[in-house]
Computed example of a mutant assay.
Amino acid sequence: MKCAYVYLEAPASLIEEFPLPSPIPRWTFPASSLYSLPAFFTKAGLSESLIATLLNPKHLIKEGSFIHLLPPLAELEGMTPKTRTVIYTELAKYPENEYQADPVLIIGTSVEEWYQGSKLRPEIISKIKQLSYTRGDAIAFSDIPVLLNYSQSDSEARSIFKACTRTRTLMIRLKLDRHSNAEEIIKYWSFGTGLRRKDLEPMVRSIIELDGVDDLGLVHILPALARKLLYTYPGLDMAKHGVMPDCHWTSLNFFNYEPHQYLLDARLATSQVLEQFTPVEPPYQFADVLFFLDNTTGDAFHSCVHLADNIVYTKNGRNILSPWVIMRLDDVKKIYLHKGDGRVQGFRRKDIAAEKKAADEVR
């Protein structure tokens, strides 16, 4: 396989549907934690004067069971990456801190390379680098509101927000020539059982035999729905079902020509896994579903579909700004296993597992 990284950003038409966040930074904590915050901030590395400013009743906003703190811009920008990691890891526990709970994640590269080719001014990219911190093995960035203070116009503010939806994905082409084993290639991409052979064989054999053409885009051999969704963002029309597609909807619909919308329900999706899939261990084969399970509860908090060579098809989040992409499994682990409390378990459809076993026995 020949792989190349490309970067996706949400289309401008989608960005226009979202109100830009306030440029005033805000940290939200449970009101019950108010008296423990001074010790927490001190341990994180904040100065006594900044802690006093943050907790000054004149600057502290109480709302129901939460309190909102408004860190001054200069002091927030002056925080060290280590301090930012400690504080933002705590803030991420509460969904009210949306940009800490769901930060921009830069995986396997630098801030500069991630935004190379974007429309951001160098000054904005430098500010992102200054405000970045670590989350596991990834670079994280949460201070989108701070960046908006440096925009020179409304259009640039939207360009900044758009750039913060940037996602890295793989474009993959299968190398095929007269030395390729057509039978093995067709067998692998038809689940090892020949279930999709009629869809794949004519195209694979013709490329192998054709002079001057020596590769095939992976997208062309994916099932119909995955082929349709790959490298795209959910349309607003998908919200008509009351909830947006997530990773489990994506993984369990991988085999379907048309999506089964009942898989938006976590309970029914779980039921399908229990009834129709069987656990498998590596090495994984094409179309195995990989579930990321909590070590304590056993609950699945993410899933993706194995394609080949630890490359997976995934949608990382239920939100509308999360596209369908192809990633390396190790990079997906950096997103979802950074806490060290989870594991990956493969599952294979029972009908495919049974047919593959029968085919192997015949051979």
Rank of each mutant, 00 (worst) to 15 (best):
residue 45 G to P: 11
residue 216 L to M: 14
residue 148 L to K: 10
residue 77 E to W: 08
residue 183 E to H: 13
residue 307 L to I: 15
residue 59 H to R: 15
residue 26 R to K: 11
residue 229 L to S: 03
residue 10 A to T: 13
residue 237 D to M: 06
residue 3 C to L: 09
residue 47 S to N: 10
residue 113 E to Q: 13
residue 261 Q to A: 07
residue 303 S to K: 11
residue 39 A to C: 07
residue 71 P to Q: 11
residue 218 L to S: 05
residue 194 G to R: 04
residue 321 L to W: 06
residue 117 G to W: 12
residue 77 E to S: 06
residue 311 I to L: 15
residue 304 C to N: 09
residue 236 L to A: 03
residue 132 S to E: 08
residue 119 K to H: 15
residue 99 Y to H: 12
residue 34 L to E: 13
residue 148 L to W: 14
residue 62 K to N: 03
residue 122 P to N: 04
residue 263 L to D: 01
residue 111 V to R: 12
residue 88 Y to T: 02
residue 81 P to H: 07
residue 148 L to A: 10
residue 117 G to C: 07
residue 8 L to N: 06
residue 344 V to S: 02
residue 254 F to C: 01
residue 215 D to M: 06
residue 252 L to M: 12
residue 281 E to F: 04
residue 55 L to P: 14
residue 48 E to C: 04
residue 1 M to I: 14
residue 208 I to Y: 06
residue 352 I to A: 10
residue 166 R to W: 04
residue 342 G to M: 09
residue 327 M to W: 07
residue 162 K to T: 04
residue 272 Q to P: 01
residue 225 L to N: 05
residue 261 Q to G: 01
residue 345 Q to T: 06
residue 59 H to D: 06
residue 120 L to Y: 10
residue 142 S to H: 14
residue 76 L to N: 13
residue 243 V to I: 14
residue 343 R to W: 02
residue 208 I to L: 15
residue 68 H to D: 00
residue 35 Y to A: 02
residue 290 L to K: 10
residue 176 L to N: 13
residue 266 A to D: 15
residue 124 I to F: 09
residue 200 L to W: 05
residue 54 L to H: 02
residue 212 G to M: 00
residue 159 S to V: 09
residue 246 D to H: 12
residue 288 D to L: 12
residue 166 R to A: 03
residue 317 G to Q: 14
residue 74 A to L: 09
residue 182 A to F: 06
residue 115 Y to T: 00
residue 161 F to D: 00
residue 112 E to A: 11
residue 305 V to Y: 05
residue 327 M to Q: 13
residue 259 P to N: 07
residue 283 P to G: 00
residue 150 Y to C: 08
residue 104 V to A: 07
residue 58 K to T: 03
residue 107 I to N: 13
residue 136 G to W: 14
residue 72 P to S: 07
residue 35 Y to T: 03
residue 95 P to G: 03
residue 198 K to W: 10
residue 205 R to E: 07
residue 222 L to G: 08
residue 100 Q to G: 01
residue 81 P to S: 10
residue 333 K to Q: 14
residue 140 A to P: 08
residue 325 V to P: 05
residue 244 M to H: 02
residue 3 C to H: 09
residue 143 D to P: 06
residue 204 V to W: 10
residue 247 C to F: 07
residue 279 P to Q: 13
residue 363 R to L: 09
residue 161 F to G: 00
residue 5 Y to G: 00
residue 215 D to H: 10
residue 244 M to F: 15
residue 101 A to H: 08
residue 38 P to V: 03
residue 309 D to S: 07
residue 263 L to P: 02
residue 176 L to G: 05
residue 322 S to C: 14
residue 171 M to Y: 10
residue 20 L to M: 04
residue 201 E to M: 05
residue 266 A to M: 04
residue 345 Q to N: 01
residue 271 S to C: 11
residue 108 G to Y: 12
residue 193 T to R: 09
residue 117 G to F: 11
residue 267 R to D: 05
residue 143 D to F: 03
residue 23 P to D: 05
residue 357 K to L: 08
residue 7 Y to S: 13
residue 219 V to N: 08
residue 276 Q to D: 11
residue 263 L to I: 08
residue 63 E to A: 03
residue 95 P to S: 04
residue 221 I to Y: 05
residue 315 K to A: 00
residue 354 A to E: 15
residue 351 D to M: 02
residue 86 V to M: 11
residue 166 R to C: 04
residue 251 S to N: 08
